Computed example of a mutant assay.
Amino acid sequence: MPPRRRYDQYCSAARALDLVGDRWTLLIVRELLAGPRRYTDLHADLPGVSTDVLASRLKDMERDALATRRRLRPPGAAYVYELTPRGRGLLPVLQALGEWGRDGLEERRPTDAVRAHWFALPLLTALRGVNTDTGPGILEVGLEEGNFHLFIGAEDGPVYGEGLAPGGADARLVMDEGTCTAVVRGELTVPEGIRAGRITVTGDSPLGKALREE
C-alpha cells in the first residue's frame, strides 16, 4: 500500500488527524460503533462513498489499529469489520463533533440521505442529562425512518444497534423525526418531550420508569 499523507507536525491534534482526518473515516467509525459490519452493509449505509474509497479507508483503519477484519463462523462465513478499543475510543470525539455540528440540522436538504440509526449517537449524548443511572440497559427508539436501539451504560462492545433490539428492550421511545431533531439540537429534552406527549415511552423496567419520572 502507498504511504499515507501526513501533516508531519509534532502536535496531538495533527497526529489524530493523520489517522482520522481523511474523508469518510469518522463516518465509518460511526457505523462500526454499532458492532461488526460487513463491507456491503457499510457501503449501503454510507451513501456517496465509492467502493474504492471505502476499501482504502478500511485498509488504513486496519493498518492504524483502529479496526480489524475477521471471518464469521459458518454458516455465515462472511468477513466483518469491527473497531478495536482504540477505535471505540473515538466515541466521545464523534459525540462532541455531533454537538458542535447540531445547528446544521436546522433544515434537511432535498439531497440529504437519512438513516434512523444516524440519530443514535446524538440521542445518546442528549440522554446524558437524564437520570438513566439504573445500570446497563437497552433503550429502543422508533422513528418514522425505522428503529434502532441504544446500549445505555455500555462500557465496551457496541454502543447502539440497528433495528429492534434482539431479545427485547428495557424501554422504548417513539417519536417523529421533528421531535428527535429538536432533542438532538438541544431545543427539547427527552423528559420535556414525554410530558408534552411528543415522545411515548413504554416499559416497566427501572430504565422506563426513570424516563417517565424524570
Score class of each variant (00 low, 15 high):
27 L>S: 12
121 L>E: 11
10 Y>N: 08
63 R>N: 15
13 A>Y: 15
100 W>E: 15
91 L>I: 07
155 E>K: 11
14 A>V: 05
112 D>M: 09
130 V>E: 06
210 A>R: 00
76 G>A: 07
17 L>V: 02
208 G>W: 14
169 A>L: 02
99 E>G: 07
49 V>Y: 15
156 D>W: 04
101 G>R: 09
86 R>N: 09
84 T>L: 11
7 Y>H: 05
11 C>L: 08
86 R>A: 15
154 A>R: 06
126 A>R: 05
119 F>N: 01
47 P>Y: 02
32 L>W: 09
17 L>H: 02
197 G>T: 06
11 C>V: 11
177 E>R: 01
165 A>W: 12
16 A>L: 15
101 G>D: 10
35 G>M: 04
193 G>S: 13
134 T>G: 14
83 L>W: 09
161 G>K: 01
29 V>D: 13
15 R>G: 07
45 D>E: 04
22 D>L: 14
177 E>H: 12
106 E>P: 01
162 E>I: 14
150 L>D: 04
40 T>K: 07
47 P>M: 11
123 L>E: 09
1 M>P: 07
16 A>M: 13
162 E>R: 08
178 G>L: 10
208 G>C: 08
214 E>G: 00
92 P>S: 08
42 L>C: 05
124 L>P: 04
41 D>K: 02
91 L>D: 12
209 K>Q: 15
103 D>Q: 11
129 G>T: 03
197 G>W: 12
209 K>G: 07
96 A>Y: 02
100 W>D: 08
140 E>Y: 03
92 P>I: 07
63 R>V: 05
39 Y>L: 14
200 T>S: 11
72 L>R: 08
120 A>N: 09
212 R>N: 11
4 R>A: 08
77 A>E: 07
